[in-house]
Structures are given as structure tokens and as C-alpha cells.
Amino acid sequence: MNSSIAGLSSQLRQLRQQHLRLLVELSDSGALGVAAARMGIAQPAASRLLAEMEANLGIALHERQGRGLRLTPAGAALALRARRIQIEIADAARDLAEAATGRAGVVRVGAVTGPALNLVLPALKELQQSHPHLRSEVTVTTSVALCDQLRAGRLDFALARPGPEDGELDARLIAGEPVSLVVRRGHPLLVLPRIKPADLMCHDWVMGDDETLLTQSVKARLAELRLPMPQRRISTSSFLFTLALITQTDCIAPMATPVVDSFAGNPSIPFVSLPVDLGLAVAPFSLVTRAGSQPTPSARRLIEAILARCSEVSLAQWAGAE
């Protein structure tokens, strides 16, 4: 280690938690007043903290930008480390609480819809049998939102599709996700002796906008099959609104097969999958964690239960995208 790095290392050790938190808040807000309010301190106090850091390190961490400010490259780099330190301290507190009480703590898991129903839900049900004090917070949303929350420390891990070059996250590929075509019970297509692709194109399809993964995957597969694009007079990414549409109209909705399977066998459910296979699927999802982090004991238990569940589920269910 050269002398300049050794000197910076010594100076960094003098920073307090308030210094680190201020950098994180400035990175998020770009405004000293907002950062101070979030920390519960006055703006002059926040200004002094920032000046202390820069004086101790001998490096400019911010620069003025109009009425606000922005972090310099050095400030942004330190803010990234500061965020990780804060997350690790919070996780350490959860580890200590579990060790001190001997009870399972809180696990915060995120997932896209299919894996949430097919993997997270059964794994949680099984785990709560052996760890009745375990509490869980489950977030079901898009991969982009899940990865953002994971980087911010609001999730322990996620079942999602991260970007291909996200250095802040580690991803363990799990499986592809097949897609079914769903209609209401009593749909005219269900009385046909054999459903042909051309028959499908006679009905509206309900999907999200063109930027959603499901819509992109469906359109790409239809193009591969040289089929025309279906009519979409209504687009929505809302699961509940999609269910309302397919139960009240003759439209067709592509849905993740695990979502549909979670309702299979219940005659009161007003929708069913069409008995037709176009090979529709979305890209494989992964088990995603923060790079270099260690999950809390409760998160580790849930990860193990999910991975065990993966090995029990027939891979034929997930093979559509592979």
C-alpha cells in the first residue's frame, strides 16, 4: 500500500456514521436541505459535516449545481461505499438480534409474479412450520424495481432478471418462465376440436405496453412463428385489470404459467389456459443478491428453502424459455 492510499485509509477511519449517512442522502437527493431534513438535523449542521469530510480527506466531494449540488466522482464513489457500509451495519444488527434471542427475524424478499407464487409462497409456508417466529416482507413487482430496492438495502434478495452488467449485484440463474394463453371459462375457442394459431388472432389480446418483458417476448415469438401481431385495443400491466378483462370479454391474455398453475384445479376460478402451445416464454430469472454481502440467517434459510423447492419442481414446467 503506497503512502497516499495509507493516508486516505487512516483519514477514512475518522469518518463518523453521520458523515457516511450525509453522503448517501446527498447522493439520493442532490440537495443539502433535503439531506439534512431526512437526517433530522439543521442545514448548517449538514454543511459543517460536509466541510469536515472534505477537510479531513483533502478531497472535494461536492460541487454546486444551480440551487442544488452534485457529488464529484470522488464523492459518488465514497457515497456508494457509505451506502454499503450502512446496509452491512443494519444487517449486522439483525444478525445480532437473531443470535441474542434465538428466534428467526425478518426476511425481506422480492420476486417477479411467477416465482413469487410458484417458489416464494410455498417455501415460506414450509419454513414457517419449522420457524414459527419468522416474519417476512414480500415485494412483488418488476425486475427493475426489485434490483433498485436490493441495491438500496430494502430487500435481502430477489428472484428477478438483473441487467447483464450490474456490478453491484450477484445473480444465480434459476430457470426460464413459460407463458400460457388465458381466457374466460366458456370462451368460444374452448369448443373448437383443435385450436389453430389463426384462430387466436381473431380475438383481442391484452398485454402491457411494448417496453414490458412479457410483451416483448410474446411479440418476438410470434414473429419467429411468422404470425401476425394480435390486436391490442387495451394495454395494461395490472394483473387485476387483466383478470377483469378476460372474465368479462373474449380477449386472450398471455400470463406466466406458474401464475396460472397456482389457480389450477379450482373450479370457482373464472379463467383457464387454452390447450395450445406456441412455445411462449420469458427470459430466465435469477436469485439475486448484493455483491459481496452475506444474507442474514433468516434470509439464508429462505434461500435454501427456495432452492430446495426448485429442485422439487419439475423442470419441464420451466423449460419453455431454455
Rank of each mutant, 00 (worst) to 15 (best):
R13A: 08
L96I: 06
L213E: 15
L173S: 10
V288Y: 05
G114M: 00
G33S: 11
F157S: 05
A90K: 09
P178K: 04
E54F: 08
S130I: 15
A305Y: 00
V191M: 01
M39T: 02
F271M: 13
E25S: 08
V313D: 15
R221L: 06
I306F: 12
V138K: 01
Q129A: 15
Q149C: 08
S238F: 12
L200W: 03
S293Y: 00
L173G: 04
A104K: 01
S47M: 07
L80Y: 00
P230S: 15
I5C: 13
V179M: 04
I234M: 06
W318D: 02
S235E: 12
R94Q: 10
Q216C: 06
I303G: 10
Q65Y: 06
T247K: 14
M39I: 03
Q14A: 04
G7T: 08
I306W: 07
T249C: 10
R103M: 08
A116C: 06
T113W: 13
G320D: 00
T247M: 08
A45M: 02
W205M: 09
Q14K: 08
L213W: 11
P228Y: 14
A264P: 01
Q129N: 08
K196R: 13
A37C: 02
A281C: 00
V282D: 05
N118V: 11
R94F: 03
A55E: 11
S4I: 12
R154V: 01
I269C: 03
D204I: 10
Q17K: 14
G33C: 04
R135L: 08
R301L: 14
A104Y: 03
P258L: 04
L245Q: 14
A45I: 04
A175D: 03
E165F: 10
L240Y: 12
G208V: 08
